[in-house]
Design a protein around this nucleic acid. Sequence first.
DNA 1: TTTAGCACTCGGTCCAAGTGAGTGCTAACA
DNA 2: TGTTAGCACTCACTTGGACCGAGTGCTAAA
Lengths: 344, 344
Amino acid sequence: MLTERQLLILKAIIDDYVCHAEPVGSRSVSKREDMNFSPATIRNEMADLEELGFLEKPHSSAGRIPSQKGYRYFVDHMLSPTMLTKNEVADIRLMYEEQFVEFEKLIQQSAKILSSLTSYTSIVLGPELFESTLKQIQLVPISKDSAVAIIVTDTGHVENQTVTVPGGFDVREIEKIVNILNDKLQGVPLIHLRHKLSTEIRKVLSKYVDQYDQTMEMLNQMFRQSHNEKVFYAGKTNILTQPEFNDVNRVRDLFNIFEEDQLISKHFRSEQHGMKIKIGEENEFAPFDDCSIITATYSIDGKHLGTVGVLGPTRMEYQRVVGVLDFFSKDLTKVLTKRYQNNN
Amino acid sequence: MLTERQLLILKAIIDDYVCHAEPVGSRSVSKREDMNFSPATIRNEMADLEELGFLEKPHSSAGRIPSQKGYRYFVDHMLSPTMLTKNEVADIRLMYEEQFVEFEKLIQQSAKILSSLTSYTSIVLGPELFESTLKQIQLVPISKDSAVAIIVTDTGHVENQTVTVPGGFDVREIEKIVNILNDKLQGVPLIHLRHKLSTEIRKVLSKYVDQYDQTMEMLNQMFRQSHNEKVFYAGKTNILTQPEFNDVNRVRDLFNIFEEDQLISKHFRSEQHGMKIKIGEENEFAPFDDCSIITATYSIDGKHLGTVGVLGPTRMEYQRVVGVLDFFSKDLTKVLTKRYQNNN
DNA sequence: TTTAGCACTCGGTCCAAGTGAGTGCTAACA
DNA sequence: TGTTAGCACTCACTTGGACCGAGTGCTAAA
């Protein structure tokens, strides 16, 4: 519904504003190479674009800035993602080089690379464990009445949890229980562990184990932990170089949210595969009103695992970030799949 | 060397400045309850205190503010730590209630409590592993050529590391190796693991294991990890409410340091037991120039473990923070010792 | 339909005057 | 001799007016 020329002008204004963070006047638009109209003509078009809601004016004698709707239109209809350079691809590949670095470290590294490639803040959600299945359980006695329960998943993720060991249990007894657990629970999705425990395991244990009640108590402790996905940040301070965050109060509001991993994780988690772009107030939290968030998902062998995301000002280099995230998420998926597809 | 009256005035000025963050004038000092001198007299004393280096003037017609030396004198000679209220002690105790929460969670909680008690930023260093000893090693196969190595310490700390498994190893072979490791390495301080590996273990393995070279390669991967202590922060944004951090550039400099756990850990780590106060430029890093850092240590059974610390502006409530940290670190030590003293 | 011209708007900067909190110094007082 | 009242002085901060300039909207001509 926009004319060719309007598109051209809208794009020019967004380009300029993204780069300089200052209202763009008709004169400076007219000076662009590909722009063959006088400032007056452009002023007319700008007035129209403003009426349509794609631009706004900070005050009557200033230039125009893109509105949220303007960015949205740009993203939906005019976005051509920037390709990565060879060097950038090489930088990413370098990360995978240390071949058997732990999963968590890899994810953490991912966050660092994303923030350095985009110069925004990156937020990466660790594997969502509810799709992972149990590989093995271990119980290591620590003191006379406590032990560390260790749960390993098929993706190599390790969780541990201190539990109280009922008095009078000896090593053999514990071994027996652990064997039963491993026998019955291997391959069970973590999210079903508690349910299995209170049904099947319950029955088996009541047959073979002496101190049934205390044992169940211990196992409940073991699986009590809610398997929260971890949140990794990198380049948190990048956002502070943006002029829209010159006000410390805003910074505080934003960083307060960063301290709530739970909130962030909920907000970033993406159910369906693929890229998602949330602009300004499309985000749930008020401190994100001047921010845009772009997320993509990564998976192993088609199994949805987690989310990689970049947070920047609404005045963000969308093409660049979309380009980076698209490449990166797919590449990460490829690497992870290759590494973990041979399960069992 | 300071007169009674000078002490009184110095303390009054520090009190006032800590509270209001603005230069303190002679008039407002003279109005305090316990102050029976006219502004003129106080002005004379203030001039003397300035000459001695305990006070400074932002400009000629402003009141005085305490200098770094002033704070130092106050801390060294006039500090009477505030006791915690019953409610505050109760809050702390509440934290220990969930009795067998993991060690790491406990430490993380500690950071939260400290920051909420002081309204400053708290930084807590997790256990310094070099004093921990090995409790048990586990090796869990994940895919056909990789496994997760899990290391449990006597303090219930768990580390894990993905390793490449030499082709052709079967479960029994791995079990044998793990058994040898556990047999030879139990009780060995983590810091000596690598050394032991390249001496004793080497010999034993060459006798009992088939694919010696590949096995050594795997074990090297296993112990490659440098056992860095983790750093936990809480209330990072508290510092942003302080007027000295109204400037975003300062905030950025400070938060940049927060992103470098390594640096922080080095700077906060305390070799000897007890409380340490670093005021302003006594800190190593320029972004801390307007900050003071107070740290205390916690231990298990006399064995030095880690550090709890609070970071605030130089204009900090020293008495309060020292009171809180003193109580907290001792209490934490007590609880941890009680929980883990029964090792074997 | 496009453009040149022109009056107008309005935030930002500069400057001068005024304000007030605070100081240092001096002289008088107890 | 130590303390205090008084007074001139300093200086950051606020206020308001003048000015500047980037940018606009409108109108009329090309």
